[in-house]
Simulated assay, not measured.
Amino acid sequence: MLEHNTLKDVLKDLYDLSEGSNFMTDGKPSTIEDIQDLYHERIINVIDLLGYESIYLDEK
């Protein structure tokens, strides 16, 4: 998992993802689940940087 150290970096990465197209995973077109995983990792990174881990830890 790619983890950024600043909120600005992870938000820029999320923005870049939102502008992308033709996503590839292991040399094949990405599935919706692949793209969701990319976003999920970065959203968790934002949550961690903001100190709100309880958002996803309370789910379990």
Results as ranks from 00 to 15, higher is better:
Tyr39Phe: 15
Ser21Ile: 06
Gly51Arg: 08
His4Trp: 15
Asn22Gln: 15
Lys8Tyr: 11
Gln36Ala: 13
Thr31Gln: 01
Met1Gly: 10
Phe23Met: 15
Asp58Gly: 07
Ile43Cys: 05
Thr31Arg: 02
Asp58Lys: 09
Asp26Gly: 14
Leu49Thr: 09
Ile32His: 04
His4Gln: 10
Thr6Tyr: 12
Ser54Thr: 10
Asp26Val: 06
Asp9Ser: 07
His4Arg: 08
Val10Gln: 00
Thr6Glu: 14
Asp58Leu: 08
Ile44Pro: 04
Asp9Met: 02
Asp16Trp: 06
Ile47Glu: 01
Thr31Ser: 06
Ile43His: 04
Leu17Trp: 03
Ile43Gln: 06
Leu14Met: 14
Ile44Cys: 02
Tyr15Asp: 09
Ser21Ala: 15
Leu38Gln: 04
Tyr52Arg: 09
Tyr56Phe: 08
Glu41Asn: 11
Glu33Ala: 14
Gly51Cys: 06
Leu2Ser: 03
Glu41Tyr: 13
Thr25Lys: 15
Leu50Phe: 01
Ile44Tyr: 03
Asp16Arg: 06
Glu53Val: 00
Leu38His: 01
Asn45Thr: 02
Pro29Thr: 13
Glu59Asp: 07
Lys28Leu: 14
Met1Asp: 13
Glu19Ala: 00
Leu11Val: 01
Val46Glu: 09
Asp26Thr: 09
Asp34Trp: 09
Leu2Trp: 02
Gly20Ala: 11
Asp34Lys: 10
Lys28Gly: 07
His4Asp: 02
Tyr39Trp: 11
Pro29Lys: 15
Pro29Met: 11
Leu17Arg: 03
Glu3Arg: 13
Glu41Gln: 14
Leu14Lys: 07
Leu49Pro: 11
Ile35Glu: 05
Phe23Thr: 03
Ser18Gly: 08
Leu11Glu: 08
Ser21Phe: 10
Thr25Ile: 12
Thr31Lys: 03
Ile44His: 02
Val46Asn: 07
Thr6Val: 15
Lys60Tyr: 12
Val46Cys: 12
Glu19Leu: 00
Lys60Arg: 12
Leu11Pro: 00
Thr6Gly: 15
Pro29Gln: 14
Ile32Asp: 07
Glu3His: 12
Asp13Val: 03
Thr25Gly: 06
Ile43Leu: 14
Glu59Val: 14
His40Phe: 10
Leu49Glu: 09
Leu11Asp: 00
Phe23Asn: 02
Leu11Trp: 00
Asp48Pro: 01
Glu19Asp: 02
Ser18Glu: 07
Asn45Ala: 06
Thr6Arg: 13
Asp13Cys: 08
Glu33Trp: 07
Met1Val: 12
Glu3Thr: 12
Tyr39Ser: 14
Glu53Leu: 02
Gln36Ile: 09
Glu3Cys: 13
Ser21Trp: 09
His4Val: 01
Val10Arg: 04
Met1Ser: 11
Lys60Pro: 03
Asp26Tyr: 15
Ile47Phe: 02
Ile43Ser: 03
Ser30Pro: 05
